[in-house]
């Protein structure tokens, strides 16, 4: 079974080509696009109009069975249609390069957030407040945000269409992206570098808050703190990406289903077997390679460090409930 993580449409607004422009540089990008489109329509128009005119005027007719005239070259014409496009292309190049530099060099006073991608979840860590979130990035409006990103497994790519930003995430290396949102709201985040089975479910939301709402969000601290354990577990099941490999309705996926897991007898590839108790569930998340369930491959990434103790407890409580 393939579960869809998100169905909310966060990019409804916008014009014919683009979703709504919400970062400081997004409108520049759109303007350059319109400029190139204008030139393209113009040149395409010329090519097509000339073609149609010639097709009509010089089509073969009974009176007109051979070419009227053989003009084999005209150097002035050749130079004209070399130099004019060359000039225009250089204008486009410099314009694009200038904006590109802008989009790559984050202002010195940016707020830094760390982004970690793993199949198939986005984790965010806010160094100045110590908060962490998964599948949800929350930032203040009108403040430059610099994301320092890395991947723990394969390549991923971080893309916010409304901000017009995108950058690949690479294991063992940091890449950065920055943007400054100009309007509060919720926006879509995609993974755009193919990363395997659930590439298309590797989504997240960007929440842009007004300055005061943001302060309140920070004060409230970890939004998950107030949730009862089993509800938190249910939320983590999707937020942390367990859903990509584990079902809750009994179907077998990349990993075993969680339905009826608790207190059932597990057999492992080593031949041993025992009951799935709380300790076993905890071990499965922190050291998944220790015991591999028979019939499955050891492909589950470790969640040591990315799940807090409370979160591990929450997932265990949730699993207990799935009978």
């Amino acid at each position: 079974m393939d579960t869809k993580l998100q169905t909310e449409n966060l990019m409804d607004n916008g014009n014919f080509w683009f979703p709504e422009a919400v970062s400081t540089f997004a409108t520049n990008v759109d303007t350059l696009y319109s400029f190139i489109m204008f030139l393209s329509y113009l040149f395409f128009g010329i090519i097509i109009a000339a073609t149609i005119y010639f097709l009509v005027k010089y089509r073969k007719t009974p009176q007109h069975r051979k070419a009227l005239k053989h003009i084999t070259h005209n150097n002035l014409l050749e130079i004209t249609w070399t130099v004019i496009p060359l000039f225009l292309l250089m204008v486009i190049f410099f314009w694009g390069f200038k904006d590109y530099l802008n989009m790559n060099i984050a202002p010195g006073d940016s707020q830094e957030i760390r982004v970690t991608a793993k199949k198939w979840v986005w984790d965010f860590y806010y160094p100045d407040t110590g908060l962490t979130t998964s599948s949800e990035l929350t930032v203040p409006v009108n403040k430059p945000i610099k994301l320092i990103m890395s991947s723990v497994d394969v390549l991923h790519s971080f893309f916010i269409p409304n901000m017009r930003v995108k950058k690949d995430l690479i294991p063992n290396r940091y890449t950065t992206v920055w943007f400054e949102a100009i309007k509060p709201g919720k926006y879509q985040i995609f993974c755009t570098e193919y990363c395997g089975k659930d590439h298309s479910n590797m989504l997240a939301t960007l929440t842009v808050l007004s300055e005061s709402d943001y302060q309140e969000w920070v004060k409230a601290g970890d939004p998950n703190k107030s949730l009862p354990l089993d509800q938190l577990g249910q939320k983590l099941y999707t937020d942390k990406g367990c859903v990509a490999c584990h079902s809750i309705d009994g179907t077998t996926n990349i990993g075993p289903t969680w339905k009826g897991l608790y207190q059932s007898n597990r057999t492992f590839t080593s031949g041993e077997s025992h009951i799935a108790d709380d300790n076993y569930l905890r071990e499965s998340m922190v050291k998944p390679m220790e015991e591999i369930v028979e019939g499955f491959q050891g492909v589950m990434p470790t969640f040591a460090g990315s799940l807090s103790d409370r979160e591990i407890d929450a997932i265990i409580e949730y699993i207990k409930k799935i009978k």
């Binding site: 990008v29 486009i92 190049f93 694009g96 390069f97 989009m103 930003v165 755009t192």
Partner: peptide, 27 residues
Amino acid sequence: FLFLFSIGGFTGVVLGTLSLDIHLHDT
């Protein structure tokens, strides 16, 4: 060819433009 390839060419210019490729890459 003339019609379709020209469109391919013009959109190639769009993609070669650095600031635009950031948004359009891998879409």
